[in-house]
Design a binder for these strands. Structure first.
Length: 439
RNA sequence: GUGAUUGUAGCUCAGCUGGUUAGAGCGCUGGUUUGUGGCACCAGAGGUCGCGGGUUCGAAUCCCGUCUUUCACCCCA
């Protein structure tokens, strides 16, 4: 059998793993700058914890874990589908986080801020930028309704992407309350989800495409409202204001968006865009919603929003939360395509000591240990094989220097050091070597 | 879930309308060079042509199924 991995998953070899860690580390630094601390939750949750939180489509994509042993045979026997799988792999990090907050509510100080970098699984069909296993980097805050949180999250998004070299992203902002107000004024409140999902496609399929899809879902709109709602491929904020008029929830949403928008702009973040067509599919969002896109990548690389009732589902009422999720794998692909990763992420040792035999090997190890004590990563080649092979190893691992300690060097306490890039070779004492490698 | 698409050596690929020993480049191993690599030259190893079935005297090549790859839709990080 040819070795391979399940579809929609991928291996991260040395260099790829280093690159991905670079993304994690960069984001972590920003998260911690805003006083978020890490938590972790198990890869699997009880199925009932997950179902019903992501909408119909989302539920379908949950990876269920088949029951085993007696439980399985019993479930098959009785034909009880719900007993076939009682556990599932987590679909995102937000719902498990909400579960965690409710479960440990007496041990937690609110507002509770955490970040979480872990993989999630979706039983989707893989395609560009879409995997069945991928890492999310979530920052969430539960237990405060203040819009300060929204403002800070936008700042985190902005700083995070800038630090990754992706300062040219667009941060989109919208508010579900505003959308709800619009839907109320259109008289189609009971088709809120259907409407917003279709509206989200405006820039992709245009006005006619949206109208067509709406009518396919049994939603028809009066012409005058359509004209207020959107133009060919965008929308007109003044017209939207006219559309929602005195609608209470709509104006609430509008005020929230404006507050966040103005504050963030005042802090010099210019790539923020109000987009009333932004919907976001996850059902639990209730207030501000965010999404980050890049013009060289066709799907969003970060998304999030406020959820007023998520903990309520688990029994903790009136606790609002808000958070965002960076899609590490999409960011990885985008950065790879743009060549944004720093070089030498995989440089392991600064110097490799060649192996000429047992005596020489031990002499080299003694030097290596002294370098290590000075925080200089280094290694001794483990086998006394031919030089060609040892050189190649150093080259493949991007080790810049080769140290040679043979009989001559041992007897006069020196180390022959060869710069592998230039071919330059010097005879140094240990102190000279330390000095050179510390630069 | 729907519709396309791909699969030949470790990697990237060639192999014309079916014809007998399936090729190249890179990589790998050994040698020219038993403590001095990158270059060059020489030699060598490595493939049930994704898998299963069918058509045929004969299949990498045609047909069916299946898995896999990639892409779009749905939906999403």
């Amino acid at each position: 059998m040819k070795p391979s991995i399940p579809k929609g998953t991928r291996d991260f070899l040395l260099e790829a793993a280093a690159k991905r860690n670079y993304i994690f580390d960069t984001l972590k630094k920003v998260f911690e700058q805003y006083a978020f601390l890490p938590v972790e939750t198990p890869a699997m949750e009880k199925l009932e914890t997950l179902t019903g939180k992501y909408g119909e489509e989302g539920d379908r994509l949950i990876f269920k874990i088949l029951a085993r042993g007696e439980k399985l045979s019993k479930a098959l026997e009785v034909g009880n589908e719900t007993k076939l799988a009682e556990e599932a792999l987590r679909y995102d990090l937000t719902v498990p986080f909400a579960r965690m907050v409710v479960q440990y509510q007496n041990e937690i100080t609110f507002p509770f801020k955490r970040y979480q970098i872990q993989p999630v699984w979706r039983a989707d069909r893989p395609q560009k930028g879409r995997y069945r296993e991928f890492y999310q980097c979530d920052v969430d805050m539960i237990g405060s309704k203040s819009l300060l949180n929204e403002i800070e999250l936008v700042q985190i998004i902005d700083e995070g992407f800038k630090n990754l070299g992706l300062g040219d992203v667009t941060i989109k902002l919208n508010n579900r309350k505003l959308l709800l107000g619009i839907v109320q004024e259109l008289g189609i409140e009971n088709q809120f989800i259907d409407f917003t999902v279709v509206l989200d496609k405006l820039d992709k399929v245009g006005k006619d495409g949206v109208l067509k899809e709406l009518s396919e879902k049994g939603i028809s709109l009066a012409d005058d409202k359509v004209n207020l709602l959107f133009k060919e491929s965008g929308f007109d904020l003044q017209a939207i204001k006219a559309l929602i008029g005195q609608n209470q929830i709509g104006n609430e949403g509008l005020n929230e968006v404006n507050f966040v928008f103005d504050a963030v702009k005042a802090f010099g973040i210019s790539n923020l865009e109000l987009d009333i067509t932004l919907a976001r599919g996850l059902n639990y969002y209730t207030g501000c919603i965010f999404e980050v896109v890049h013009n060289e990548f066709n799907s969003s690389i970060c998304g999030g929003g406020r959820y007023d009732d998520l903990t309520g589902i688990f029994g903790l009422k009136d606790v609002s939360g808000v958070g965002i999720s960076f899609g590490a794998d999409r960011i990885f692909d985008l950065m790879e395509a743009k060549g944004l990763f720093p070089k030498n992420l995989t440089q392991s040792a600064k110097i490799l000591f060649a192996n000429f035999g047992e005596k020489e090997m031990l002499a080299s190890l003694k030097i290596a240990n002294q370098l290590r004590a000075q925080n200089i990563p280094c290694e001794v080649y483990p086998d006394a094989v031919k030089m060609k092979k040892q050189f190649k190893y150093a080259e493949d691992r991007k080790i810049p220097y080769l140290g040679l300690i043979g009989e001559d060097e041992m007897s006069n306490a020196t180390i022959t050091v060869k710069n592998l890039a230039t071919g330059e070779q010097t005879s140094s004492t240990l102190d000279e070597l330390l000095h050179m490698l510390n630069q």
